[in-house]
């Protein structure tokens, strides 16, 4: 299972293990949207154990960000290594997302 989830009230934490790519991005989207449907409003996706992300994976994050905001919630991303930060900077997605060094950092004030 590339996505491990923990739920605490309206907070959902998703730990990504490995790549987020065209082959599994739909699984992540559905998993998070199902939880949003059940009342989750704060979503933290932790890439500490993540691999690379392709354009489909980035697109899934953009889509989730929009859907969560529409429900009055917030999406935060944590644990991005230098490679992933490069990817977010190249695509200017660092301007769209809140990026945090660690899961603990992301939980401050969340």
């Amino acid at each position: 299972m590339p996505f491990a989830i923990e739920r605490d009230d309206d907070l959902l934490t998703v730990a990504v293990d490995g790549q987020l790519v065209v082959g599994n991005r739909q699984e992540l989207k559905q998993l998070v949207l199902d939880e949003v449907e059940q009342g989750v409003r704060r979503v933290l996706i932790d890439f500490s154990n993540g691999g690379y992300i392709d354009s489909s994976g980035l697109g899934a994050l953009v889509s989730l960000n929009k859907r969560i905001r529409e429900q009055g919630g917030e999406l935060r991303l944590a644990g991005l290594n230098d490679d992933l930060r490069t990817l977010f900077e190249l695509t200017r997605l660092d301007t769209l997302f809140h990026l945090y060094g660690t899961r603990a950092d992301a939980l401050v004030g969340f």
């Binding site: 392709d54 354009s55 697109g59 953009v62 889509s63 695509t91 200017r92």
Partner: peptide
């Protein structure tokens, strides 16, 4: 472009 879900593959 930044807000789009698609359209990054060729760019990358």
């Amino acid at each position: 472009w930044v807000e789009r879900e698609d359209g990054r593959g060729v760019f990358l």
